[in-house]
Computed example of a mutant assay.
Amino acid sequence: MANKGAKTTFSASIAKFRELGLLGFILVLSIVIQIRNPSFLTLENINDMLTNTAILSILTVGMMLVIVTRGIDLSIGATLALSGMIAALTVKTYPGINPIVAILEGTLIGVICGVVLGYLISKGGILPIIATLGLMNVFRGITFMASGGKWVSAHQMPDSFKGIATSSLWGVNTLILIAIFIYVVMYYFISHTRTGRQIYAVGSNPESAQISGINNGKILWLVYSIMGGLSGLAGVLWVSKFASAQGDTAMGYELSVIAACVLGGVSIAGGSGKISGIILGSILLGILNNALPLINVSPFWQMGIQGSIILIAVIINAVVKRGVDRNHLMRRVI
């Protein structure tokens, strides 16, 4: 019995230091890649890598909240494409418009998409995976209808709009600063507000949360609205960065976002996830995307390596969760 308790305690302790272990893995991986290619840890490449990861990291914040509540959102790529397309069409028609207006417009469109999705899930009782799959196709269809099936290319966008993603402050790219700002705000929201704590309560035990007076429906509605707003913001930043808006923008990108969350220790079963974890998960995915081509790894092997690392992360998450659950059960018995 004592041995079993020791194993349980060890499994539970892994959860506490999981982020530290992930950070150690990132450092070791970076050293190995640097040995293979000395240009990896140059300031220029690190800045490029963080810039390329910024949009992904913004989306992982919203996805973490969704997954914490035992949900999933497969429509974020389509929401991103729709918001980016509408913003691109707006700046194409009104070149003198302030870029902040385009950002607000795209974010608002994303929020509207999230509100609709949240309503279907919280009030309509539709399973998240079904609701998001359905709306994913709806949003894609609206994107193609709005654009008439055409692209908005770089020469049709004013320099001020493209400057959103290419500008910098204190030598740091604007995308990175926006991501940092969002992480700071969301960290405060999760850690220091009642609503933030309620999100985790709903994900940990929906029945107990309901009994304690938490409105589960409103929490779910809020979470998907936040996810939609961040997707809308990401859509504007994406179009500005790549200077192109098209109907199939970010097709399948939701899988990368979910992968970053899983790598960061967010439990698919809900109720568990940390800001520090998803930051590291996003960085790890960014390193893999950036470094594997640098060391001349075949594209086919790149997919296999990324998939293997994600699978290992899922297995670790499952083992840790099982250990934590056993630990809680042992405490109740004692």
Rank of each mutant, 00 (worst) to 15 (best):
V152N: 07
G271Q: 14
L175F: 13
R140M: 14
T8S: 14
G228D: 06
L177H: 11
V314K: 05
W238T: 14
L65E: 04
G235W: 08
S13H: 01
K162E: 15
F300T: 07
G307D: 09
Y94H: 11
T193G: 01
S153A: 13
G141Q: 05
G247A: 11
M157T: 01
V333F: 07
P99Q: 02
L280W: 05
K162V: 13
L89H: 04
R331I: 13
A318K: 07
I310K: 05
K274N: 12
M186C: 13
V239G: 03
I55E: 03
F181L: 15
A54I: 13
K123E: 13
I14M: 12
M157E: 06
G62S: 10
T90W: 05
L220G: 01
I126R: 08
S191E: 13
S147M: 06
V320G: 02
S160L: 10
T166F: 09
I334D: 11
I309D: 09
N289A: 12
F181I: 15
V101Y: 09
N317E: 06
L82H: 03
G5V: 09
D48C: 04
T107S: 05
Q156T: 09
M186Y: 07
L65N: 02
V202A: 00
M186S: 11
T193R: 00
G203Q: 01
T193L: 00
S267H: 00
N173C: 12
N327L: 13
A78Q: 10
I226G: 04
G232W: 00
L127P: 03
L74R: 11
I310M: 04
G273E: 06
L43T: 07
N296M: 08
D248L: 12
S39A: 15
G106V: 08
I103F: 08
G304H: 03
P38R: 05
L292G: 07
L22Q: 05
A6G: 00
V61A: 06
I31V: 09
N37K: 03
N98A: 03
I176E: 09
V239E: 08
S122Q: 07
E105A: 01
I278N: 08
D73I: 00
F17K: 01
N205F: 02
Y188M: 06
I182G: 00
K7M: 04
F181N: 05
A54L: 12
L59M: 13
S75P: 09
M186F: 12
P95G: 07
S167Y: 09
D73C: 03
E254H: 06
R140P: 02
F144Y: 14
V91S: 07
P128L: 10
G270C: 15
Y94T: 15
L175Q: 09
N327W: 14
Y183I: 13
A250T: 11
L29W: 06
A291S: 01
K7C: 01
L23K: 07
G228Q: 01
F189R: 06
T93L: 05
Y94V: 15
I67S: 03
I315M: 11
E207S: 00
L80F: 02
R140H: 09
V28S: 05
S83N: 07
